[in-house]
Structures are given as C-alpha cells and as structure tokens.
Design a protein around this nucleic acid. Sequence first.
DNA 1: ACCTGAACACCGTTCAAGT
DNA 2: ACCTGAACACCGTTCAAGT
Lengths: 229, 229
Amino acid sequence: MNPPSSPTRGRPARLDRARTVRTALDLLNESGLDALTMRRLADAMGVQAGALYRHFATKHDLLTAMADHMLGQAADAAEPTRSGHWSEETARFARALRTALLGHRDGARVFAGTHATGPNTLRFADNLTGVLRQAGFPDDEAARALYAITNFTTGHTLEEQAALQPDDGKAAEAETLHQAVAAGTYPHLAATLPTLTSTDFTAHFEYGLRLLLNGLRTTHPQAHQRHTT
Amino acid sequence: MNPPSSPTRGRPARLDRARTVRTALDLLNESGLDALTMRRLADAMGVQAGALYRHFATKHDLLTAMADHMLGQAADAAEPTRSGHWSEETARFARALRTALLGHRDGARVFAGTHATGPNTLRFADNLTGVLRQAGFPDDEAARALYAITNFTTGHTLEEQAALQPDDGKAAEAETLHQAVAAGTYPHLAATLPTLTSTDFTAHFEYGLRLLLNGLRTTHPQAHQRHTT
DNA sequence: ACCTGAACACCGTTCAAGT
DNA sequence: ACCTGAACACCGTTCAAGT
C-alpha cells in the first residue's frame, strides 16, 4: 500500500505540518506574533528557513494552520450536549472561542488575520449553526447569528489581548485619557471611567454576549420566554 | 508670542504630523497596509525614511494617528441629533464607525491594531456613551454597551475587508468549503451555505447590530417597548 | 526526497554629519 | 532646526546545489 520507496524509510524528515504548527504556537506563546519569524521558527526546528516552504507556501499559510489548530480547543470545549437550552449552548460556544483565542499569546490577532477554513474551524461553525437551527431559527438567521457571535468574540478578544500586552506606552495613554477627562472635555467618559478602565474583561465579554443572546431571544420564532437571564 | 526664531521663517518644513498622516492614508488606499512602509511613505513625501522619526516615535505611533484620523469621519457622521430614539441614534454611531473603517483600505486592520485614544476616537466614544446615558442606562451598562458595539463593529468590518481583498487563494478556499460540504461532513453549513457565502455584508452587519439593539432594549430600565423594529 | 547555502529585495530604526 | 546618508540588525521568499 506504500509507494515503492516508503516515506518511512531513509532519513526521518525533521519537518512536517503538524509538528511545525505546534512549534510555531509554542514560539508564539513565548515571544508573541511580532517575534514569530520564519527564521526563528526554522531555528527552533533545527532547520534552515527555506525548508519551511516545503510545507507552507507562505507565512500566511502557516498562520492559517495555526488559527485552525487553536480552534480545535474551541470546537472540543463546545461540543453540543443536547442538554442545555439553546441560549446556554450558544453561550458555551462563544465562551469556548474566547478561551481558545486567549489560550495563545496574540491568539485573536492570529485568528482575525487569517481566513481559517480548516476542519476545526468548520466543525466549530457547523456545531454552533446546528444549535441555532435545532432551536428553530431559520437558516439565514442561524448563519447571520454565527457571524454576529464570532465577530463580536474576535473583536472583543482582540481588544482584551491588546490591553494585556506588555506596557507599550500604556501608561502614557491612560495619562492622556485622564487629563482629557479631567479637563471636562468628555463628560460621559468621565462618568463611566471606572467601568471603561476596568480590566475585568470577562464582565465586558459577558455583557456583550448577553446583549446578543437577548437579541436572539427577541427574534426567536417561538419567543415565549420572558426572563432576562 | 513666537519664540525668537519664529518657526514660520527659514526653510519651510516638508514634514508635519497632519500632512504625513494624510499622505499615509492615501498610500494605504492605493497599496494596502502590507505595502505601507516607512520608506515608501518617506518617498511619497520627498524625504528620507529617517526624517519621519522626528514626528512619530515608531511606525505604530503613525498607525495610531491614522486610526484617530479615520475616526474623525465616524465622529462627524454620528454627531448626536437629539431627535431620534436612542436605539436609532446608537445604530447611527455603529453604522458611522463601519463606514469610516470601510472608507480606507484595510481601515479595520489599522483601527484594530492600535489603541487609538486621540480626540476623534474620544469624541466618538463620548457621544455614543452620552446617547446611552441619556436614554437612562446606568453608567456601567453604557460603558459596556459602548465596548460591545464597537467590538462587534470592528470584528465585522475586519472580516468584511478581508473578504473584499484581492484574490489570495480565495477560490481555493471556497473550493475546500464546497467539497467538505458536498461530502456531507458539515450538514448545518451546507444548509446555510447561501447566506454564509453571501457578500451582502451590510445585511450581515445590520443583523448583528439588530441583535445588540434588541438586547439593549431588553435590559433597558424603562423597557416598555415591545416592537422588534 | 528533503534540506542547505546563499542570495534577492526588501524592512524599521538610529544617529553622526551636513546645511 | 530639520533633514541626509549610511549603517545595523533584521525580514519573507526563491532556488541551484548537495546528500
């Protein structure tokens, strides 16, 4: 069943897609996206940079594979359980996506920067869409709700991870904000400053998620619910 | 009122922040973010690359200034008018943000990649927060709603502009999707494929926005409304 | 078949020196 | 004061040549 010269014979290949993606994700966690270069990755794998191009046509290709690998966590964590209410199931998918992106440094940036259409991403999307369809949403609303939820989640996590970043003039930025606010230029920002500058990102995320879910309840074909969670 | 050697005398400076930002945004529109380099920008301004560092400490600094400039459009377009219902006012802010980001090639990527805290960004945020507070939302909810709306909008527009990009193996991607779907692996994606692959991004955006607004209505202190828009 | 070595065409950023 | 020239320490990607 193997070709004449079996690929398992001869020098064992140092490189393969799976191992390269895992090493790249490790490097991402250690050094961040800006420091993830093809040369550094090649170094980490004991190989010359050019060798990586045997498995990935471009760096963007590699990042796409990394994004899909991350989504594996999300897809596993959110496997539909048929038990909960559709809104709680949907929330689990959104939370699993955020958690998966938070699982790697700059994870949201990697995911947002690629159009991942790998098996994990598709599985995640298929399962979430299934939850909504089985809840009775029409096909087009299920598709659009999928987009709304994932786009909100990536948008939020992008912000969250940017805010967590090593101090890149972050102090100076807060300074500008406080000064402008103190000057009375932005009265509404001044009034809401404690919440705006809060680092409880889970609370921010849960609020936005709740808005989306409440919105979905409102448009649900059998909208017989009345509770606000 | 001017220092001894007035800055308006002598060689007229070829460089200043405002003109540099405008030229950079033009270059962005022509060539995209990946082609926007400090050297190319310097060329466009008839200057050596190093000269740019007199006005911007880093490239990221320049991108932040570009992001705030773009938000000027959004802040102007959404100036509160005191006339409409708070939900319609809020929708105007979200739409103005999307439109402003769509106004420049890779606009969402520039905005999402920077923590803009310039005057335009703050004005936009202050005005939107004001609409929500005057509608009766408590301060913390107004702040969180601001985040939910802007994060959804950037997340959506990021996707939208990525999808509009010149064909970067986009055909191959659609191929993979259709094959996987035809193989019956993703039944729910198959059922929703027409909507999922629709390029009517305005419809996608409006649906997500409606979910958020309906969600806000649900949690509104004086929730006496019942209509679904 | 798989990888090396070396090159090509670039980057962002710094800084002495010129005017 | 403002900008040049030139360098430093890198990039992604390609491809003949080795093993």
